[in-house]
Nucleic acid binder design. Sequence first.
DNA 1: CTGTATCCACAAAGATACTG
DNA 2: CAGTATCTTTGTGGATACAG
Lengths: 119, 119
Amino acid sequence: MSRKYIDNPNACTLVHTMNIIGNKWKPIIIYLLSNGPMRFGKLNALVPTISKKVLTTQLKELENDELIIRKSYAEIPPRVEYSLSEKAKGLLPVLKELSQWAENNFPEIEFEECRIVDL
Amino acid sequence: MSRKYIDNPNACTLVHTMNIIGNKWKPIIIYLLSNGPMRFGKLNALVPTISKKVLTTQLKELENDELIIRKSYAEIPPRVEYSLSEKAKGLLPVLKELSQWAENNFPEIEFEECRIVDL
DNA sequence: CTGTATCCACAAAGATACTG
DNA sequence: CAGTATCTTTGTGGATACAG
């Protein structure tokens, strides 16, 4: 999402939030990381329809916005772990509410499409 | 945003929410309408960088998702008013929190870019 | 294992002109 | 005034191959 601002300061911060988390994959990534640190490969496996390139991009943007922390271990084979920052943790309750809102207002969503997997 | 679901029911509803409001213009439109009904031209004027075509699309999608109500008056010249549905009103507090979160965590945003206008 | 590098497809956004 | 129609541009996501 390109970053543009408009005519109202309240809406402005909202646009900023959406710029940061309002896309296809980021809420998912944040949600998955809310259970604790996770490796690149695991994230890639849990979001089966995302490509490595896109996942990399999303993680990098989230890191730039300081929502996630990337920790790289100097091992062979390489190991990289991603975890949530404090900023991101402050966002979790709000995301929960958004989720709740959708559940209350769109009961017709076909949740069968969401397969439950072990984290 | 295309509508896809992934491996977790909680994240799933979140994705749904983002599908509905997580794009460039919709939060703004919702925010502007939170002050009461507004006409097409007014919305277009308050979001100066949006084209009429895009605004039309966004309004139509919001209407399909039952977040806004479109009321057309049989007058010449035509008058169309958009207002928030109850569903959307339930979302307002959460949007407020999102806004608040951004304000707390990203004080570096240049709010000068947001010109304040009268609604 | 954790990425990059390329190239491609498609959808969304923007510009402009036109209409009932 | 409130849109449509059309065309162009941009951006995001996806497939695949390759690298450290």
